[in-house]
Write a protein that binds this DNA or RNA. Structure first.
Length: 412
DNA sequence: TGTCCACAGGAAATACGGGGGT
DNA sequence: ACCCCCGTATTTCCTGTGGACA
């Protein structure tokens, strides 16, 4: 017993001596409270990142300070380009400036980052405005709209409604947009300015043309971060989160380069830094270039695994079938073989098998996730078929097939 | 040159499930 | 509480296709 204790003690001492992380929370935005997020953001802005975007926001909202009424604003940008936080930061600032000038302004943030139907979206908005308690059902959309209008009936200033990820409204999207764009402004005395966020450029095209023509908007596009921006962002994060002197030279530059090359997503870049730090801590060393490489490959691996773990059972079955059919080797199989393997997997795990047609679509889906590679090959009179290759690293395949086997018996 | 293999993949029909209206 | 409707997943049906082989 005694030597177990001393072993643990010495392990902990070792970890403490070789600590890498000072405050882990700064490597994960989810764990920061809003005000801390905005604080970090401010530092990032001070480094001249997102300068053009902020300038555009300013010029769009400048009329407010002159007592005028700017039109709506559509903000486009991929995930991790800082749309949400930048807008929030800006709106807070704007509100402060207005307070000094005695202009009435109010802004609310309607966050639709998880998809929801029109009903829930209106429900959330009503709660945000304090118009009503959250209701489950038994109330019509009309009733919700009336409540929202009623709660704004006496407010005469400017009202900025920041609808985040507005294309996530499933079903009745037109109802929702019509309400915001046409009906609400007419029913309330205040001046309504909508700020709509989306990561799809083609979003307005799927809107009711009547709403679309009614919607006078300015557009603002958030470009993906480039390597220089990411270096600034990572540097600031590293200062806050890591102990000084444990970053090997060039690590930040390397992470920024990798991230800007294939997505420009700040959140992912920070995640890579976090993973590298974690590995360094485990190994009891500083953060080296080699560890960054390792972190990249582990994050890839994690991505594949969590992708599959949350994927529908049928997709999992298809993946298992392909692995089984290729038997782990890097040889190729045709559609027919894979489908046979899939059928037998289904009977083994008591899963109702799909048609060959549907299986083909599953293969396509796996291909787009780049879990497999397929290409169509004609073998003359021996038919045409997909040639399926499984070119993931050996260890990833093993771990995937372990995960799938574990899931195989589970219900759903 | 025509045939025919073994599928691909589009279109329409159908099954299904969950949320909203009443 | 119940039913209906709508979006999505899957099936059914079908036409298309590149090249080996006769």
């Amino acid at each position: 017993m005694e030597n177990v204790r001393s072993k643990i003690v010495s392990q902990i001492q070792h970890m403490v001596r070789h600590a890498v992380v000072r405050d882990r929370r700064f490597l994960d935005d989810e764990q920061l409270i809003r005000s801390e997020q905005l604080e970090v953001l401010e530092e990032i802005f001070n480094a001249n990142v997102r300068d053009t975007e902020i300038r555009e926001l300013s010029s769009h909202f400048a009329p407010v300070l002159r007592g005028d009424h700017p039109c709506h604003l559509a903000v486009w940008g991929k995930t991790g380009t800082g749309k949400t936080l930048t807008c929030l930061y800006f709106l807070n600032l704007l509100a402060e400036m207005c307070k000094g000038k005695d202009i009435q302004i109010r802004h609310e943030h309607l966050d639709l980052s998880t998809p929801r139907p029109c009903f829930r979206a209106l429900n959330d908005l009503a709660c945000l405005l304090g118009a009503s308690r959250r209701v489950k059902k038994g109330i019509s959309l009309e009733e919700l709209m009336v409540r929202i209008e009623a709660s704004l009936a006496r407010y005469k200033g400017i009202f900025v409604l920041f609808v985040d990820e507005c294309d996530h409204v499933r079903r009745d999207r037109d109802t929702f947009m019509t309400f915001l764009v046409r009906r609400l402004p007419q029913q309330i005395p205040s001046k309504l300015i909508l700020v709509l966020t989306s990561n799809r450029l083609d979003w307005p095209d799927q809107l009711d043309p009547r709403v679309k023509s009614f919607l006078k908007i300015n557009e603002l596009i958030f470009k993906p971060y480039d390597a220089v921006d990411l270096q600034q962002i990572l540097g600031i994060r590293a200062d806050k989160a890591l102990l000084p002197g444990i970053l090997a030279a060039g690590v930040i530059e390397k992470i920024a380069g990798l991230a800007s090359r294939d997505h420009g997503d700040a959140r992912k870049a920070v995640a890579l830094l976090a993973k590298s730090a974690y590995l360094a801590e485990k190994a009891g060393t500083s953060i080296t270039m080699a560890l960054v490489d390792q972190a990249v490959s582990e994050l890839d691996q994690d991505r594949y695994l969590s992708l599959l773990r949350t994927a529908p059972r049928q997709l999992q079955a298809a993946m298992a079938a392909v692995i089984h059919a290729t038997n782990g080797s890097d040889s190729t199989v045709g559609t027919g073989e894979a489908y046979d393997s899939y059928r037998s997997f289904c009977t083994r795990t008591d899963l109702p098998p799909l048609t060959g047609r549907a299986f083909g679509d599953l293969l396509n889906e796996l291909d787009t996730y780049s879990l497999i590679r397929t290409r169509i090959l004609s073998r003359g009179r021996y038919g045409r078929s997909r040639q399926i290759t499984l070119d993931l690293p050996e260890n990833v395949i093993t771990r995937i097939s372990e995960t799938l086997d574990q899931n195989a018996g589970l219900p759903r």
